[in-house]
């Protein structure tokens, strides 16, 4: 079994988070006051507010945390950060945890934020520019062909309007625009990935 296989409890989960998750070293500073949980506008929409997630990490609930959809619900409103009496960068920890769970393949399947973010990223790194046409099509069809057609028809008038306003170019379907130095871009992304892998414990 690899190091990252799911175990429901891991005594060293806090240490793993500190080491591999962006801003994870802050988790131990939480004093469980509850201000972030009470301040989050999405609070009733998610299973575990930040305060609880931090306690779960410290309790070693590895599986429950990493497979939870909670950190994917964060809208980056920063309400929690500005109010936390210990100045934890809560929003960033939420995103760090989401990313870590995603990299481990533990993020809940089909979670909309995760699916959209993945499509966006894959689209962006192809040429260094977002291809809005292929990105929207991919989004429409992410839940299957039939749903895709429905989505596309539903969005038709908006699409046409965007085209008229020259905000959407149908020719983008042929590959679309990108940055000039394509090999430079790919080298840059490869380097960034190498650094990230090293920092998050994914280096081979």
């Amino acid at each position: 079994m690899s190091e990252h296989a799911v175990a429901p409890y891991r005594n060293d989960f806090l240490r793993e988070v500190e080491k591999n998750v962006e801003e994870g070293h802050w988790v131990k500073m939480c004093m469980q006051c509850g201000v972030c949980a009470g301040s989050c506008p999405l609070g009733n929409a998610w299973a575990h507010p930040p305060q609880e997630i931090f306690m779960m990490i410290r309790a070693g609930k590895r599986e429950e945390v990493l497979t939870s959809d909670s950190m994917w619900m964060c809208t980056s409103c920063y309400n929690c950060i500005v109010r936390c009496p210990r100045q934890l960068p809560i929003t960033h920890i939420m995103h760090g945890l989401a990313n870590y769970a995603h990299r481990l393949g533990l993020a809940p399947k089909g979670q909309p934020t995760q699916a959209t973010a993945t499509l966006f990223w894959n689209n962006l790194i192809k040429k260094g520019r977002v291809n809005e046409l292929t990105f929207s099509l991919a989004l429409y069809f992410k839940d299957g062909f039939v749903q895709g057609i429905k989505n596309a028809l539903g969005m038709q008038s908006i699409g046409l309007g965007l085209m008229k306003a020259k905000r959407l170019n149908p020719m983008e379907i042929l590959g679309g625009h990108g940055v000039k130095d394509q090999s430079g871009l790919q080298a840059m992304i490869a380097k960034a990935r190498e650094i990230e892998d090293r920092k998050k414990g994914f280096s081979k």
């Binding site: 006051c33 509850g34 949980a37 009733n44 507010p49 305060q51």
Partner: peptide, 11 residues
């Protein structure tokens, strides 16, 4: 008063 009770995490 709005908040979350730490003992049980209820709003």
């Amino acid at each position: 008063l709005h908040g979350v009770n730490t003992e049980g995490y209820q709003r």
